[in-house]
Design a protein around this nucleic acid. Structure first.
Length: 261
DNA sequence: AAGAGAGACAACCGCTGTAGA
DNA sequence: GTCTACAGCGGTTGTCTCTCT
């Protein structure tokens, strides 16, 4: 259902690549009026572009702090890690890569990184016994294959046992044992087995004091979830997956540094 | 040199969420 | 509560450039 106003007067709207003249009009407008009020640009400047198109052009191309040029290996690594955590939540991923836009990261993933990750996964898969190559499933029988998955099925949410959240001393039991068996099981809080509280991982991904940004998104459980500070990094999913796959359960411990994969 | 195919990336589209009237 | 406009997101498409034959 098309909403009125989104693309009205379509016949009067320019499409396709932006000209230098159009760019300059948009830049001048933003300098005068600031970001936002995109819908007013055509009325105020005569620019024959929809508000959405203007916003996109500014955010993805014209904004001064946009970093252009090749994505570094560090950035690439970070994208892979964040994608394994967050799935296709490009704006969240872009938020952790200063100067990079969600569109740029999405394009980079779709045209290059996805294949690279898949190839890496296939290589790894060929080196393990057939019986371990079988797709795993979580507590609800949902097949999980982290390297292939473009969705954040496995770890967009974190389960923490209620008692652990309420008991800052007993931090070793942060995860209910039910879910240590399968750390990728994301159990709804109202599920009969859902003893724990459920957090959206993006909520946990808060900048942390003293954490090197390129140190791969150290996160801290916000204080209102309990007094403990459980430091994790975004490698934990892979680590858990490997440990779980090898039936060597990962002992979640207080303030433990997780190894990078 | 020319055409085909692949890759890269800018831009568009459909949708949801939200604020304000 | 409803409607409208707008911001924002993610998926998809279009177009340009490069490489190969």
């Amino acid at each position: 259902m098309k909403r009125k106003g989104a693309y009205e007067n379509q016949e009067a709207v320019n499409r396709g690549p932006w000209s230098a003249e159009e760019d300059q009009i948009l830049i001048n407008y933003v300098h005068l009026h600031g970001e936002g009020k995109w819908g007013q640009i055509s009325r105020r400047t005569g620019l024959k572009r929809g508000g959405k198109s203007c916003r996109l052009r500014w955010l993805n191309y014209l904004k001064p702090d946009i970093k252009r040029g090749n994505i570094s290996s560090d950035e690439e690594d970070l994208i892979i890690r964040l994608h394994s955590l967050l799935g296709n939540r490009w704006s969240l991923i872009a938020g952790r890569l200063p100067g990079r836009t969600d569109n740029e990261i999405k394009n980079y993933w779709n045209t290059y990184l996805r294949k690279k990750v898949e190839e890496k996964h296939n290589d790894n898969n060929n080196n393990i016994p057939v019986e371990l190559r079988m797709e795993s499933s979580n507590a609800f029988g949902i097949a999980i294959d982290p390297a292939k998955s473009s969705e954040a099925v496995m770890c967009t949410e974190v389960m923490m046992a209620t008692e652990a959240v309420n008991d800052s001393v007993n931090t070793k039991n942060l995860m209910s044992t039910n879910y240590i068996e399968n750390p990728f099981a994301s159990v709804p809080a109202d599920h009969p087995e859902g003893l724990g509280k459920q957090f959206d991982l993006s909520e946990l991904l808060m900048p942390q004091e003293g954490c090197d940004f390129n140190g791969y998104a150290c996160v801290e459980i916000p204080p209102h979830f309990g007094e403990h500070s459980c430091r994790v990094n975004d490698a934990m999913c892979e680590t858990w997956y490997d440990d779980w796959k090898n039936e060597d359960y990962f002992p979640l411990d207080y303030d433990m540094d997780f190894p990078l994969f």
